[in-house]
Design a protein around this nucleic acid. Structure first.
Lengths: 220, 220
DNA sequence: ACATGTGAAGCGCTTCACAGCG
DNA sequence: CGCTGTGAAGCGCTTCACATGT
């Protein structure tokens, strides 16, 4: 709290210490744990939450302190308030529109994935370069051609693009998304993509198995 | 090389400095980049590989040095040799059998995913608790009941389990996999699972979008 | 008495910068 | 001369330990 009080009471809402990226990645996990709590539970301690999230309790407290935490000493944290604070910090109070490019098995599965909807992520467009897929309905949405991407992103206010194409197409698709004004990309293609001014997160399913393979190999 | 020479020449094959987990996670990326190189290219510099992998060249050199690197000063690394060394370190010279539990949209997509096969990961069993799915064929494999899991893992030599169930079932499934002798789990369920003696990696699709949401929110 | 909030120490990864070698 | 291999410095995250507050 030193950081704030030094600047006076009115600066609270204006100044924030930057949240470490390691913390940002854990906030969704805390959120998940809090929501999985029995309905009657309205208080949690950092220790309790830590066990559920599989981390150290000091880490929980430090992470939550970045939210301008309002835990009560000797008691714990108010669950409802904490849920709201995390959602607020993650920008989850607003719906976000998502487009998916590459409608193969994985793209279809993601288009149908309930978890996105539950968190306020709306899939508003499906795109594929293969003319044979055009017009196919996936979860009620038609597959559209790549030429329709830029207009669709603009008119439907999409902010996030998901790439589920084969690796060779990934960079080209990323460029197209960036050109259309997309600011965040979730890349499932097994390729590294480079795009200026766009936040990219990589999820490579085969990479995950290779890491597991390493530990299997190592242990033997 | 100091670490080895101190122990004498014969210890080379016996003693290895431990590979940092951060490095382990990058090796598959390097592998990907190397394999995407034009067929004629037989040499790469750390700088070239670094650009392709989106990292710093010193990091590449340090990472590769854990493999007991044999780059040539003033020249670079032999691509073919490097590919082999990485595959060897990751234990990819051996096929690994995988079972998938939870045959919803995502489970089906993964069962069909070509990227696993290409890296030597063979899907040898599909399991689901829903009796209505039993016997469904996915990529040529029948969906089997949970009761068949333990036997199947043992008889088909499965080493890796993939969980694609809803969150509430995840822990129970993890326990079942651990009980069946599985040593590595890739968990796609939006839940934290705890299992002794089992390496668990978590891939939460909704978490990824929430992290992107944070940066969208932050930037605004 | 008890759990939070946080300086400070610890630890590991990243990056620099250059010696070493082909 | 060019590029690797690596000490050493830098940086950020984790963990400890305890002062603080109720």
């Amino acid at each position: 709290m030193r950081f704030r009080s030094r600047l006076g009471p009115l600066s609270c809402a204006l100044v924030k210490r930057p949240i470490p990226s390691a913390t940002v990645q854990r906030l969704p996990v805390y959120l998940q744990c809090l929501e999985a709590l029995a309905p009657g539970v309205s208080l949690v301690s950092s220790e309790d939450l830590a066990v559920r999230a599989g981390v150290n309790s000091a880490k929980v407290r430090k992470d939550l302190s970045y939210l301008g935490s309002h835990g009560v000493r000797g008691v714990g944290y108010d669950v409802e308030r904490l849920v709201f604070q995390i959602q607020d910090e993650l920008g989850l109070t607003k719906e976000r529109s998502v487009v998916i490019v590459g409608i193969g098995n994985l793209g279809r599965a993601l288009a149908n994935y309930d978890g996105f909807d539950q968190r306020g992520f709306r899939v508003v467009g499906l795109f594929d370069a293969d003319p044979r897929k055009l017009g196919d309905l996936v979860d009620g949405l038609p597959v559209e051609p790549m030429e329709a991407l830029a207009d669709a992103v603009l008119q439907r206010g999409a902010e996030i693009g998901i790439i589920t194409t084969p690796a060779p197409a990934a960079q080209e698709v990323a460029d197209a998304l960036a050109g259309a004004g997309i600011k965040s990309i979730l890349n499932f293609a097994p390729a590294v993509i480079k795009t200026d001014g766009v936040e990219v997160r990589r999820v490579d399913l085969s990479t995950e198995l290779q890491v597991l393979s390493f530990y299997l190999h190592r242990r033997a």
